Computed example of a mutant assay.
Amino acid sequence: MSHCTTETAVDALVVGAGPAGLMAADVLGKAGYTVLLAEHKPSVARKFLMAGKSGLNLTKDEPLDEMLPAFGPSADRLAPILRDFDAREVQAWAQSLGQPLFTGSSKRVFPKAMKASPLLRACLAEVNARVETRWRWQGFDGALSVFETPNGPQNVKAKVTVLAMGGASWRKLGSDGAWAEALPTEDIVPFQPVNMGFRVNWSSHMEAHFGAPIKAVALHAGGQAERAEFTISKAGIEGGGIYLVSKAMRDGARLTVDLFPDLSVDVLRQKLGGRGKASVTSHLRKRLKLTGARLALLQEFCRPLPNDLAPLLKAVPILHDGPRDLDEAISTSGGVSWAALDSNLMLRARANTFCAGEMIDWDAPTGGYLLTGCLATGRWAGRAAVEALAAI
């Protein structure tokens, strides 16, 4: 049975119901405009909910001048946007929705509930918009946005549009990057993984350590040094520490791990002196308490072990086979280029059409920066859309 195309007219259309889209829709709805919020998955904010399974790191409680460098080359473009909605504003927003927060020792901020669903429910209750799910955006047809829906083709005529369709990772949660084909090629930067694990072809002796955390180490890549832990998995290496240095690694930097970041080479040499007839492994266990996965990592990449172990313990080279698949990354860079957007996040090639969230070509490490950027750009695009509506 064929369906006829139907048409809907609204003041504002928001495409994508993740954090950025929800923020934009909230701003537009509170300004008194009719808003249609369209999501192509069966339910909203699926990637946001998945992030909440590990605690939902909302932001990092630090001043803007400390936060901005984490955004790398995009810091200058994001500066006014984040200044308008910084870490304190993110916390105030969550608390205004009845969500108590706490700040960990690393300055990372989490809901006390340690999950995303209560915050999402409270946010949805505030958003004054018509929400449609299973609506997949197909692009523009003149003044119309075209959708495929369970009830057939739908055209939406909107005075302003905010696109917030995510990047190109975790397609099962909604971020598949398919929308890029509907925009001019010259406006799109190719997608690349950010905050991702790396493949390692482990030898069989490492199987006993799959799932083991590597703690109390420092990771070095491309001049960057991070005190953080990571995890050995069947597929390779992953976890917070790897994500922090993943961009440098992706761009070709060598990764080394300092197994004893609090001890100098000279101190290590002193502790390892006088081995006698003991095996190297026994000596490391006895003198440095180097055991388990940390010892296995040394043996995996550094055998045969040299007589002078101290320098090696400070820089164990981690050999890998490159990033995990794009779809497995926590987030992606690429998407709509900054050159295609004006200071209001409006597409230069299409008046009154704004972009927000991860679909813009910016990247940030995990630790609260990514979600803060999505919320801030969604709010910024929503406010710019309100200003555009007021001028029509």
Results as ranks from 00 to 15, higher is better:
385 A>M: 08
65 D>H: 14
269 R>L: 01
254 R>P: 00
307 N>V: 07
244 L>D: 07
99 Q>K: 03
333 S>W: 00
277 K>D: 13
206 M>L: 14
360 I>F: 02
161 T>I: 12
333 S>F: 00
96 S>I: 00
279 S>T: 15
266 D>E: 15
92 A>F: 01
115 K>T: 06
111 P>E: 12
376 A>M: 07
303 R>E: 15
247 K>V: 04
389 L>M: 11
295 L>D: 07
321 D>P: 00
152 G>T: 11
68 L>F: 06
75 A>H: 07
162 V>S: 08
154 Q>H: 11
317 P>H: 12
325 D>V: 05
197 G>Q: 11
213 P>C: 05
125 A>W: 02
65 D>S: 12
355 C>P: 02
76 D>I: 02
239 G>P: 04
166 G>H: 09
353 T>Y: 04
367 G>N: 07
246 S>M: 09
314 K>A: 08
24 A>W: 06
367 G>W: 01
55 G>V: 08
237 I>E: 07
12 A>F: 08
388 A>Q: 14
236 G>P: 04
140 F>Y: 15
60 K>D: 01
176 D>P: 01
49 L>R: 14
107 K>F: 10
155 N>S: 13
173 L>V: 04
308 D>G: 06
280 V>Q: 13
322 G>D: 07
213 P>R: 10
118 P>F: 11
209 H>N: 12
135 W>N: 06
115 K>I: 00
267 V>W: 01
101 L>Y: 10
356 A>E: 07
63 P>V: 12
30 K>C: 02
215 K>E: 14
260 F>R: 12
199 R>Y: 07
104 G>D: 15
296 A>Q: 10
388 A>G: 03
82 L>N: 09
74 S>L: 03
326 L>K: 11
74 S>F: 04
